[in-house]
Amino acid sequence: MSSVDWPALKSAALAAQGRAYAPYSDYQVGAALLAGSGEVVTGCNVENATYGAACCAERTAVFTAVAQGLTSFRAIAVATGGPEAGTPCGICRQVLAEFSDGALEVLCFTDEGAEARYTLAQLLPHAFRLK
């Protein structure tokens, strides 16, 4: 993978994970998104009693970045709990594809030491695109 400062990105994702609001699933997720400018934007999952109104950590990070004027991304680190690293859900993969090409680097890891690395193209090989 490229010259991304993965330890710093992982640290930011872990900090965001600690802010997750997950009273229903008890599955806290944190994400740290590295913009093309070098800025890091974080997000956490925010659940809701209606479930459909919940938002994943990855999308929270992307939407926050876009609100700050950032629309190009290089990498994302996703922190989950448990023995296996959780990958972004399908909706999050498609949202990430909207703002990056398939080369976006994705690091998924847990506080128990599991880690997996992908490119977005590996996670979403046939992203939907209108243009």
Rank of each mutant, 00 (worst) to 15 (best):
A97P: 06
A75Y: 12
P125R: 06
P125V: 09
G102E: 12
C108H: 04
I76F: 03
R117Y: 06
F73Y: 10
T64N: 14
F73S: 09
V66T: 11
Q122V: 06
E84T: 13
T110P: 00
L70I: 03
A114S: 15
P83D: 12
S72V: 14
A61K: 03
Y118L: 07
A79E: 10
R117M: 07
T64E: 14
G102R: 01
V106D: 04
T60N: 10
L124Y: 04
L123C: 10
A61D: 06
L107R: 04
Q68K: 15
A65F: 02
A121F: 07
V106S: 03
F99R: 07
V62E: 08
E115C: 13
A127H: 01
R74E: 15
A77M: 10
Q94W: 01
Y118Q: 05
S72M: 05
Q122H: 10
E98T: 10
C92V: 04
R93D: 00
R129L: 11
T71F: 03
A65K: 01
L70N: 09
P125D: 01
S72E: 15
D101F: 11
F63E: 14
Q68S: 10
A61F: 01
L107P: 02
H126Q: 14
V95A: 13
A61S: 08
C92W: 03
T60Y: 02
T119K: 00
E84N: 15
G113K: 07
Y118W: 13
V95C: 13
A121P: 04
R117K: 05
L104I: 02
L70T: 02
A75V: 15
G102Q: 10
Y118G: 06
A79C: 13
R117C: 14
L96F: 05
A116Q: 14
G82H: 07
G113L: 07
A121H: 09
P88S: 07
A103I: 09
E112N: 09
E84Q: 15
Q94T: 06
T71D: 14
G82V: 06
C92Q: 02
A77L: 11
C108A: 14
D111R: 14
A121T: 02
T71K: 15
A103M: 11
R93T: 01
E84C: 09
L107M: 12
E84L: 13
A85M: 03
E112P: 00
S100G: 12
C89N: 14
G90I: 07
V78N: 10
F99S: 08
A97C: 09
G82W: 09
F63L: 11
E84M: 12
D101E: 14
G81E: 11
A77P: 12
A75W: 12
Q122F: 03
A103C: 04
C92D: 13
T80R: 00
D111Q: 14
A103R: 15
Q122K: 11
